[in-house]
Amino acid sequence: MSKIVKSHRGIYYVEKEGQVYLCKARGLFRNKKVKPVVGDEVDISINNDGTAYIKEIYERRNQLLRPPISNVDQVIVIMSLSSPDINLYTLDKYLLMLELSHIETKIIFNKTDLVDKEYSDKISKIYNNIGYDIYLNSNQENNGKELLNLFKNRSTVVTGPSGVGKSTTLNNVFSHFDFETGSISEKSLRGKHTTRHIEISKIDERSYVIDTPGFSALSLDFINDINDIGEGFIEFSKLKNECKFNNCIHENEPKCAVKNAVQNKKISESRYKNYLLLLEEFRNLRGY
């Protein structure tokens, strides 16, 4: 079986038996509204002139929607604590998408050298209490080796907003690779766009890393029903059976276990506020 390791403008780079072939997808996939994505396990047909095409795409174990990648073991979200400042709404929105995709997620809070320990501990505690594995990192102070075990024997997507230091962190961890990096624009304090395509890097026989383009905005078009938002907040989902109403969306309903947990400081207030913002954004998107 072969795997798509890179895609660029309709050309798919497929690794088969140690060799990479440039392939196009057969028209029948367009008719079925199926588009090959990086990570897909496929069968290809190789012509005499060395060109090739994808003739079959096998069932995916999972699929990340933004960016489109399949068959991954985990996603590591990298967020900077400063320069640019952390945006917890963006983080919570991305975590929502990952939870609904049922993909294991870890979080690295980057650039700890730019903030005091009290602040980094405060942010870490919010997400550690939910159940996420949290890692604090400074590429200025650490050599990255303490993060190496996160990637061993796994297919890992690394993602996060522009400018948070994804590629710099990967270069620090894997010194024998050259992931593209970029500096921060002082005017906008956003990272210059560097990684422009999705590509799988083979670290060893069992370890793969996929560096992804940085994002600044994420649409909620992956949400089908307003109740999905609560399902994607782990700590809310655990309490839903304790609410008075089965279809409680934890907003204005009486005897809501989630609102009660917020009042008792068992659920982070920032998480709940971001949840309410997500409800509002979803309603605006759907026009009601």
Rank of each mutant, 00 (worst) to 15 (best):
V209Q: 01
I223R: 05
K106D: 14
S167A: 08
D43S: 14
S207W: 14
L285G: 04
E281H: 08
E242R: 06
N139C: 04
E118F: 12
I249C: 00
K125L: 10
L100G: 08
K35Q: 11
E15C: 12
Y21M: 03
L136A: 08
E199Y: 04
I11Y: 13
R206G: 09
I46N: 04
Y135W: 09
S201C: 07
K35N: 14
D228A: 05
Y208D: 03
K106Q: 15
I103N: 06
L136F: 11
G131P: 11
N274D: 12
L22A: 00
G131A: 01
L279K: 01
N129H: 07
E231W: 02
I86T: 05
E235Y: 03
S101C: 14
L136H: 06
G144Q: 03
F174H: 09
R26K: 11
E180D: 08
S45D: 13
V164K: 02
R283L: 14
T105I: 15
N246H: 10
I107T: 08
S207V: 05
K33E: 12
R60M: 13
N62W: 14
K93I: 14
D49L: 05
L170G: 05
C248K: 02
L96Q: 12
K122W: 02
V77W: 02
I184G: 04
K240C: 01
S80T: 14
E15G: 13
M1P: 09
V72S: 06
A25L: 12
K244F: 03
F236P: 00
T168A: 11
N143K: 02
D121P: 03
L147Y: 02
A261F: 01
D133R: 15
S188N: 10
I249H: 00
E17Y: 11
I267P: 00
R206C: 09
V14A: 06
D73H: 15
K187N: 01
K125V: 02
G27S: 13
S216D: 12
T169I: 12
S101M: 07
N172Y: 03
I107V: 15
K3F: 13
S155G: 13
E15S: 14
V157F: 14
I44R: 01
G163P: 00
L65H: 09
Q19N: 09
N274W: 13
I184H: 08
S83I: 13
G230Q: 00
S120N: 07
S201Q: 07
S175N: 12
N110G: 11
K6Y: 13
P68K: 13
H250Q: 04
V42R: 01
I76H: 13
N241A: 04
E199L: 08
Q74C: 15
Q19F: 07
Y21E: 01
Y58Q: 05
Y135C: 09
N62M: 11
T181K: 11
S175P: 03
G165H: 07
Q74E: 15
K187S: 09
G191T: 02
Y89H: 15
V5W: 06
L95S: 07
L88S: 12
K238C: 01
